[in-house]
Amino acid sequence: MFKVTYDYILACGCLEHVSSEVAFIQVLERMKQGTQVGGINCISMNTEIQEVERDTGRMLDTLIELNLRKDKAYSILEAVYKGWNVLEQKTVIHSVDEDKYDVPTQFRSQSITFAAQKLRAT
């Protein structure tokens, strides 16, 4: 059976919408399997997400399926990509004003980027 593999797989802003940590790991494993030797997987996702009313500072329930702590997300990524060459690992703190509810809100997160290159066939 012919297996399709890719040089580059990018997951940007979607993995925080999987149903659980188990589902997160399963998606990462499928990404790894679909990557050819020398190929790169790049993951960009929001962690530690908060939604806050701008005027009052009241915390709102987040509508994100998988709201991992930054350290937990990195721990999972490092374990799943063990044996790969980690090319990038960075965190950027985001704060974005939004108007998606009845009151003005602010979306806050620690956005992480993790990129790794497959060194050998597995």
Rank of each mutant, 00 (worst) to 15 (best):
D102S: 14
L28E: 00
T91R: 02
I40W: 04
E16H: 15
F24E: 04
G34E: 02
V4A: 04
S111Y: 14
T105W: 01
F24H: 03
K100Q: 08
Y101M: 10
V52K: 13
R120D: 07
Q106P: 03
V22D: 11
A73F: 03
V37W: 00
N85K: 14
T122R: 07
T5K: 15
Q110P: 04
Q110G: 09
K70F: 00
L77A: 06
N85P: 02
Q26M: 09
V52G: 08
A73V: 03
Y101L: 15
I25V: 15
S95M: 06
N41K: 03
I9H: 02
S109L: 02
T35A: 09
N67R: 07
L10P: 02
Q110L: 08
A115P: 06
V103T: 13
Q117A: 11
A116Y: 05
R108A: 10
A73Q: 04
D97I: 12
V27W: 01
I9W: 00
G39Y: 01
L87C: 10
G83I: 01
N41Y: 01
Q50F: 05
F114N: 12
K82I: 03
R69K: 15
V37T: 07
K70G: 02
L68G: 05
Q106K: 13
S20A: 03
D97W: 03
V86D: 02
E65G: 05
I93K: 10
K118N: 08
I49D: 07
Q36W: 00
Y8C: 08
K72L: 09
E65Q: 13
E48Q: 12
D99A: 07
Q89S: 15
R54H: 13
